[in-house]
Computed example of a mutant assay.
Amino acid sequence: MLDSWAAIILAGGRGSRLDGVDKAGIEVGGRTLLAWTLDACIDASEVVVVGDVVPSERPVTFTRESPRFGGPVAALLTGVDALLRRPAYVGVLAVDMPNLSMGTMRRLTDAAEGGDGSVLVDPTGHRQLALVLRRDRLMEIRPSHEAQHAMALHRLLLPLSLVEVPAVGAEHRDIDTWSDLRDLEDS
């Protein structure tokens, strides 16, 4: 397992398919999505949440990407810039994946060690927004501030060789719509 990694939690989307509701504050099983995500990155040396401030029992740094709603690349890089330290690796997690766990992140950090990083893949092979990236390689491929806005994350990550880590159970499932939330609670 990596000795030093920091977590960047992406929580600043519009939530347009959820009628504009802030995903970080949505409750699943009596806890917010942010609380579930923070549990998954308990091993991180530091945590930055890119999104609006939501009450948290854990020490985290909150920040917003510029421009607001600039997309996942702008959010990721804003989160890296907000870190107090320069860890070797950064874990990147979407706030809307409540089935991610400490075990998920340990598998991702183990797979990333010594390389460019790792990414969680669902049963169909689709890459999910749960990754671990080598910070210095990320900085090498960092686009200009103007190019970050609305850039697709997969495009940013193209130059990196990422180890694909298969999802276990439902850890890859995210909540994009009210029906996703209902289906998750029914399962």
Rank of each mutant, 00 (worst) to 15 (best):
Glu46Lys: 07
Ala167Lys: 00
Gly117Phe: 07
Asn99Trp: 09
Asp81Cys: 09
Val49Ala: 02
Ser66Phe: 09
Ala150Gly: 01
Val90Leu: 13
Ser66Val: 14
Met151Pro: 03
Ile8Arg: 00
Thr124Trp: 08
Ser144Tyr: 00
Pro123Phe: 04
Ser4Glu: 15
Thr78Arg: 15
Leu138Met: 13
Pro166Trp: 06
Met151Leu: 11
Thr78Glu: 15
Ser179His: 05
Glu57Thr: 15
Thr78Trp: 11
Arg182Tyr: 06
Asp136Gln: 08
Glu113His: 14
Met97Lys: 06
Val47Ile: 15
Thr63Cys: 15
Glu46Asp: 15
Gly117Trp: 05
His126Ile: 05
Arg173Ile: 05
Leu76Arg: 04
Arg14Asn: 10
Ala150Ile: 01
Thr61His: 11
Leu76Trp: 07
Gly91Met: 05
Val90Thr: 04
Gln128Arg: 14
Ser56Phe: 00
Ser56Lys: 10
Glu171Lys: 03
Gly25Ala: 13
Ala170Ile: 01
Arg14Cys: 03
Gly51Lys: 06
Arg173Gly: 02
His172Glu: 06
Ser101Trp: 03
Thr177Glu: 03
Leu131Asp: 05
Gln148Gly: 00
Leu129Gly: 00
Gly25Glu: 10
Ile9Val: 15
Leu84Gly: 13
Leu33Cys: 04
Thr104Ala: 04
Leu84Ala: 14
His126Thr: 09
Ser4Pro: 01
Gly29Asp: 13
Ala130Gln: 10
Met151His: 05
Pro87Gln: 11
Pro159Thr: 02
Ala35Gln: 13
Leu153His: 02
Arg17Asp: 14
Leu100His: 00
Arg17Trp: 08
Leu83Gln: 12
Ser4Leu: 11
Asn99His: 13
Gly29Asn: 09
Leu158Glu: 15
Val132Ser: 03
Leu34Gly: 08
Ala111Val: 01
Phe62Asn: 06
Leu18Tyr: 03
Ala88Ser: 15
Ile8Tyr: 07
Ser45Lys: 09
Ala170Gln: 12
Pro55His: 07
Gly12Arg: 07
Arg135Tyr: 08
Val47Lys: 11
Ala130His: 08
Ser161Phe: 04
Thr78Leu: 08
Asp81Phe: 02
Ser4Met: 04
Arg64Gln: 12
Leu158Ser: 05
Ala82Gly: 04
Leu83Asn: 08
Asp116Ile: 00
Gln128Asp: 02
Gly91Glu: 08
Ile9Met: 04
Glu65Ile: 01
Val54Leu: 10
Pro166Glu: 00
Arg107Cys: 00
Arg64Val: 09
Val165His: 12
Pro55Tyr: 04
Asp3Cys: 01
Leu100Cys: 05
Pro98Ile: 02
Val49Lys: 00
Leu133Tyr: 10
Arg31Ala: 13
His149Gln: 09
Ile9Glu: 06
Val121Gly: 08
Ala88Asp: 15
Thr78Tyr: 09
